[in-house]
């Protein structure tokens, strides 16, 4: 018989077990525990209910709960996996994990597909891309002529919409991303590889007890 090591992590009532979450993600158990401290802090900033609502998410990101930002809204909607208008701890960790350098390209590709499929139709439609483009231009106070936007959309769909049905399906998106890998650049946050070192300020009680049996 060899010497077995078991990991005893804290239990968080009402939230998923950190060991289970670590086993499903690229985060270690101690990193998941550190993320719990962060989650707790964000989730009690407006309503102390153990869940992150959109205002709390915006407040954490921008220090302003009313700031409108389309990209942040979309990220919140995707983190809100259960579509309840709030993010629970398990979904917070699993969603952050997609941005981890060690997460698979498949996960990142799928996340970006859902990011642009704003109406959840299973396709990225021209109207959705146009809406996002215009909203981001407005937020950036940049101006592009309508004709220029249409040309950009024409060329994009000519390249990505291989079957020419006016919308981009999942397979078409995967192929398009393979040809344009820069589109996944926003999906990898290098600092997630070592969050407890990069952001020591949010780590309080995250030590893990290693018990030899």
């Amino acid at each position: 018989m060899g010497c077995l090591h078991s990991t005893a992590a804290r239990e968080y009532p009402g939230h998923e077990n950190p060991v289970k979450l670590a086993s499903e993600t690229a985060f270690s158990v101690s990193e998941v525990e550190a993320l719990y401290e962060l989650f707790k802090s964000i989730s009690c900033s407006v309503v102390d209910d153990g869940l992150i609502n959109k205002e709390e998410f915006q407040l954490a990101l921008f220090k302003n709960r009313k700031k409108e930002n389309l990209f942040a809204n979309r990220i919140f909607d995707l983190f809100d996996v259960k579509r309840k208008g709030v993010i629970d701890f398990g979904d917070f960790v699993r969603s952050l994990n997609v941005f981890h350098p060690n997460a698979s390209l498949e996960e990142k590709t799928d996340f970006t597909f859902r990011l642009y499929d704003m109406d959840c139709t299973g396709y990225i439609e021209r109207q959705e891309v146009k809406q996002m483009l215009i909203a981001l231009l407005c937020e950036s106070e940049m101006k592009l002529a309508d004709d220029t936007i249409e040309v950009i959309l024409d060329q994009t769909f000519e390249d990505a919409d291989v079957d020419g049905d006016g919308k981009i399906g999942k397979t078409e998106w995967s192929d398009f991303v393979i040809k344009n890998p820069s589109l996944l650049k926003i999906m990898t946050l290098p600092y997630l590889r070592d969050i407890t070192t990069t952001f020591p300020s949010f780590v309080f009680n995250s030590e893990v007890d290693e018990i030899a049996t």
Partner: peptide, 25 residues
């Protein structure tokens, strides 16, 4: 060079940074 709509969106959203979450304490 052809600049596709998604590259455009990615570049414009580059100011969005989840790292702010970690500095929220």
């Amino acid at each position: 060079k052809f600049f596709n709509a998604f590259e455009f969106i990615s570049s414009m959203s580059s100011g969005f940074d989840l790292s702010s979450l970690f500095e929220s304490k």
